[in-house]
Computed example of a mutant assay.
Amino acid sequence: MKETFNNVITYLKNPVPGIDPNKNTGYRIKILFHLFIISIITSIIITPIFSVLQELQLVDFETHKLEEMFKDMSFIQILLLGSILTPILEETLFRAPITIFVKPKSFKYAFYIFTLIFGFVHITNFEITTNVLLLSPILILPQLLVGGYFGYIRVKFGLLWAMLLHGSYNGFLFLMSFLFE
């Protein structure tokens, strides 16, 4: 897993187009699993920041738009929407287009721009206030980081793999939120 993490960090510093030549399904599942664990660890590391923002009453996490959207849905509906439909839609919008940029310089810009847009779209999950706008880089930090991971696997293995990683990540977070309610 350390090697996968190092490869991702190196890639995120200088993203370039190029599919991983290793087509072995076992290898790809292993990398997918590593990226899933890395995504979860990233979220765990970042979570205390949100607790501090909540404690300081800088951002109201109780009015998160996802909770409002999901309030009348069953667990299965939420899981299907959050771990299947949303990843398909978001990966199609934010990761599919990056591989049309084939020149390294334009690819790099496209990779970063699509990752930033993906992250900042998620600011709409919050009630927009001055504090939310000022703290938006912190509030969307998890989406920026996992967006980079999703972009990495999309470029290396293809769009379906990004959808699988995104869906697994979202599904895990939804399962955890239900378990801790």
Rank of each mutant, 00 (worst) to 15 (best):
G26H: 06
R28T: 00
R28F: 03
I29V: 06
I29P: 02
L32H: 02
F36W: 03
I37M: 04
I38C: 01
I38A: 01
I41R: 07
I41L: 02
S43P: 03
S43Q: 14
I44W: 05
I45T: 01
I45Y: 02
P48I: 01
L53N: 06
Q54V: 07
E55C: 00
E55G: 14
L56Y: 07
Q57K: 15
Q57A: 06
Q57T: 08
L58K: 14
V59M: 11
T63I: 01
T63V: 04
H64V: 13
K65A: 14
K65W: 07
K65D: 14
E68H: 09
M69L: 15
F70T: 12
S74Q: 14
F75V: 13
I76H: 09
I78W: 06
L81F: 05
L81R: 08
L81M: 07
G82P: 12
I84L: 15
I88V: 13
I88P: 05
L89M: 13
E90P: 13
A96W: 14
P97V: 00
I98R: 12
I98W: 04
T99R: 14
T99Q: 14
T99E: 10
F101K: 08
F101V: 03
V102L: 15
P104A: 00
K105S: 07
K105M: 07
K105D: 08
S106K: 14
K108R: 15
K108H: 06
F111D: 03
F111Q: 07
F111S: 07
F114T: 06
F114G: 00
L116S: 08
L116Y: 03
F118G: 11
F120D: 03
F120W: 08
F120R: 08
V121G: 02
V121Q: 11
I123R: 05
T124E: 07
F126G: 10
E127Y: 09
E127S: 11
I128Y: 09
T130D: 13
N131G: 08
V132E: 12
V132D: 12
V132A: 09
L133F: 00
L133W: 06
L133D: 04
L134E: 05
L134W: 12
S136N: 13
L139W: 06
P142H: 02
P142K: 05
L144P: 10
L144N: 05
G147Y: 09
G147F: 05
G147D: 06
G147N: 09
